[in-house]
Design a protein around this nucleic acid. Sequence first.
DNA 1: GCGAATTTGTACGTATGTATC
DNA 2: AGATACATACGTACAAATTCG
Lengths: 90, 90
Amino acid sequence: MTGPCGTCHTLPSVTVDRFDPTPIYLQIAGVLRERIQSGQYAPGQVLPSEQQLQQEFEVARATARRAVEVLRDEGLVVTMPQRGSYVTPK
Amino acid sequence: MTGPCGTCHTLPSVTVDRFDPTPIYLQIAGVLRERIQSGQYAPGQVLPSEQQLQQEFEVARATARRAVEVLRDEGLVVTMPQRGSYVTPK
DNA sequence: GCGAATTTGTACGTATGTATC
DNA sequence: AGATACATACGTACAAATTCG
């Protein structure tokens, strides 16, 4: 697993602040929401898998999963079992 | 912890069928939903705590919690942190 | 007012099942 | 057949707020 630069391997993610009282799953949901709204994750595109999110943000899978659940409840993504979560088309 | 009859102590719950492919949390949600609709749990009344549900149905707390989440999503109960989940008043 | 118990919220880890690729 | 990916379910631990003696 490489970092955002595609090269670094051991640096922890800077997108999650464990000293921030905001729940980690909400922090992650916020990051993903921004990526969707910025078009980095385009409509119809598949999101990173739970395992990939787990590795990128260095959290438990349940936490990554919880973040995606937030977006699902917001209608931003649609999850298809055994397929992945897709950005809801506009 | 006593069973439904208020006396028995060791008999396992018969309300959850672990051979039923239906997810356990949905089975429990179904039981609780019936109790609400039948008036056994009256509007405004507090539901059994997650720990009590855990013991009654002999499941993990996360599973009991998941069942209550279903009812919350349905609007049947309202959960107040550190207080409990209450049957939504009509 | 204080401390203990209770209760929900969050987060971690592990295991298994099932469908998809 | 194997790897991938989500769903379910178990367990543990700690935090924060409320309740109660």
